[in-house]
Design a protein around this nucleic acid. Structure first.
Lengths: 368, 368
DNA sequence: GCGGCGTATGAAATCGATTACAAGATGCTA
DNA sequence: TAGCATCTTGTAATCGATTTCATACGCCGC
């Protein structure tokens, strides 16, 4: 039975394979040349500079191309001209899909429009990182984009060793000559804290992102700055370590519930985390924003659909990706960037504090 | 000011560019050969078949490789050996990120482990599809994976013209010789309907997926089959056209609310849609599962975090991707598939009906 | 001491394109 | 009609690897 399956399968595959060999081992430029009765140089010109050919020849060659279904072998062309059109986008593993997928769509749309092909490489562990480094140094690529403050780096070798034009997205690793497109995480976090202070909250419970993470560091700084400006730091801030995922929100909520003297406001490092926090809080019988206010970060669609809708910082996800891609393309082609960059080669995009149902004034007993 | 910025930027980029030229225009095999005092053939062998070299030569060459930071040019190698290690994964645009990102992670992990590089291509419109077709016929690729029943096809040319080994994922386009890895959508949908019938519901409101979509067609068939078996079709099924996105759930809920005689159970075509449905229903003052039961499809994490948690069909997302990738690798290397395939070259993975808070017996008034 | 064999290495062909240079054809001017 | 510019096309080098085939060397047995 099993072997029958295998045979059946193999037959079909072989069949397909054979059927399509004329396409697969597809027409080479020399085939077209022969068919059209011209040299390979002429065929090449018919594709890349048709205006250089006489009317008649051009028609003849194009007809042959059409007839044979010829597509230039990209490998050969790229080898010859010494430049590929592939761009590697490095994404952290298990990376907040609703957020990053939209960022990547911005990258993809822009890059493909400009004629590039996008390779997505997830960072996860040294093996993987090493592969990415090899990819970046193997002559394959035209450019590089990273979406995390950390760059793949394995015993002395860095992904930047390839010397590829590179752009950082959503974080700034602070590498000279590598521009970054991102939001101002610190300012955004300040506006979160300010919003809570304006509502009357005086203490904040903060479920952090992973220690050392670029965005986390900046956001933490922002919250501290705002509380400090209000004369409330450090006593007003209760931190709980997290790492951007559901589970962190859940654990954060449990830690919060265990507190004897609970702050009336909570900031979660991102929306995913906040959604989980909300769920656990509700299971415990507390209400939002009745008992506590909650605010997230990112502005993913799901933040709109929880109960209550989540107050959050909406990032311009698509634009972040599109802007970074545009900048990278400009760097590759050597034209001056159309994107505004500051002295440190950074471009900050605006965010939007979306106030929704999850934040309100603190309960009467907790106002001061 | 602006020009200053530009100049500054350019200076830095150029700088980096120059600094890294030795790496970028990186060491060629001939450089290594010269440095080690051997021929290029020997260097090539040192990399691909070190056991063929004498101890001394090998050491000398490897030292030179290390010294110069040589990485073989993948383009050249692939051109020569006539096979690349790149696989194109075609993904529908705006494609349900929480669902597909996990499927793609399964693909990515498996493929990278096997030494392949993954190119993600979003389908969106003819231009884009044509680019994908060109990519698939340009000699670049080793294999092809599609994650939607539809294949990129533009005026007569198909993405399969390249004759690449191809696997369908999450849907079966029914192409001979192209195996499919997916779940049994029809059976899953039957189990959704059965679950509702067993709870005592007798009429179902169904927010569909896009017309013509493979999964939608199969799921619709499943619901109809189950209701028919119970002697309730067609009067028991109220359909509302949708397309898998939040907005469809919202509109579906409005249509539902507008009904004079509302069914006590609702099936949404996927979780995203169901979450939005739930939100709108709650805003209208109805409760779930008190007034109506709701069930989704996919089993994304967010389904766990809405209120109440959503009953849904959990798909083995990672495994779907991993299995399809494994199969594709086997096809490419010509070994018999280790994946069980039926007579139509399909492999079905098991799903899990996750019963959670959003489904219950219908309200007393609506039982029969 | 010589034929034969195995091992280690190199020379050169090759993959499929692009492109610099050369050459032939055509037309225009003097 | 010779001379020169222009246009069209072809020849051959080239990109950076892999791999076939040939060669050189050492060693063995007779």
């Amino acid at each position: 039975m099993l072997s029958e399956k295998e045979i059946d399968y193999n037959t079909e595959i072989r069949l397909t394979y054979k059927r399509s060999i004329p396409a697969r081992r597809s027409a080479r430029i020399s085939d077209v040349a022969r068919a059209a009765g011209v040299s390979v140089a002429t065929v090449s010109r018919a594709v890349s500079a048709p205006e250089k050919l006489s009317e008649g020849t051009r028609r003849r060659v194009l007809a042959a191309i059409d007839e044979l279904g010829y597509t230039p072998n990209t490998l050969a062309r790229q080898l010859r001209v010494g430049s590929s059109r592939m761009i590697l986008v490095v994404v952290p593993r298990r990376s907040n899909p609703p957020f990053f997928s939209e960022v990547l769509r911005g990258v993809d749309v822009t890059l493909v429009e400009a004629g590039y092909v996008l390779i997505t490489g997830y960072m996860e562990g040294e093996d993987r990182d090493l592969r990415l480094i090899e990819l970046a140094t193997s002559g394959h690529l035209a450019g590089l984009m990273t979406t995390s403050g950390k760059l793949p780096q394995v015993n002395g070798r860095s992904i930047l060793d390839g010397g590829l034009p590179a752009v950082a997205l959503c974080a700034d690793p602070g590498v000279k000559g590598m521009p970054a497109v991102l939001i101002d995480d610190e300012a955004a976090a300040r506006s979160q804290a300010r919003h809570l202070l304006e509502l009357g909250h005086r203490r904040i419970f903060y479920v952090t992102g992973p220690a050392g993470n670029y965005n986390e560091t900046a956001r933490h700084r922002g919250i501290v700055a705002e509380l400090t400006a209000a004369g409330l730091y450090p006593e007003a801030l209760v931190e709980c370590p997290g790492d951007y995922v559901f589970e962190a929100g859940h654990r954060g909520a449990e830690a919060y519930l265990a507190l004897a003297d609970r702050p009336s406001a909570v900031i979660c490092s991102n929306d995913e985390c906040a959604v989980a926090f909300m769920k656990t809080i509700r299971s415990a019988g507390l209400t939002i924003p009745g008992d506590l206010s909650l605010i997230g970060f990112d502005g993913i669609e799901f933040a709109d659909y929880c109960e209550p809708a989540l107050t959050t910082i909406a990032q311009p996800r698509f634009e972040l990706g599109a802007t970074a891609a545009k900048l990278l393309v400009e760097m590759i082609s050597g034209v001056p960037p159309s994107v505004d960059l500051d002295a440190q080669n950074r471009s900050f995009l605006d965010v939007d504090l979306k106030v929704r149902g999850s934040t309100a004034a603190p309960p009467a007993g907790q106002r001061d």
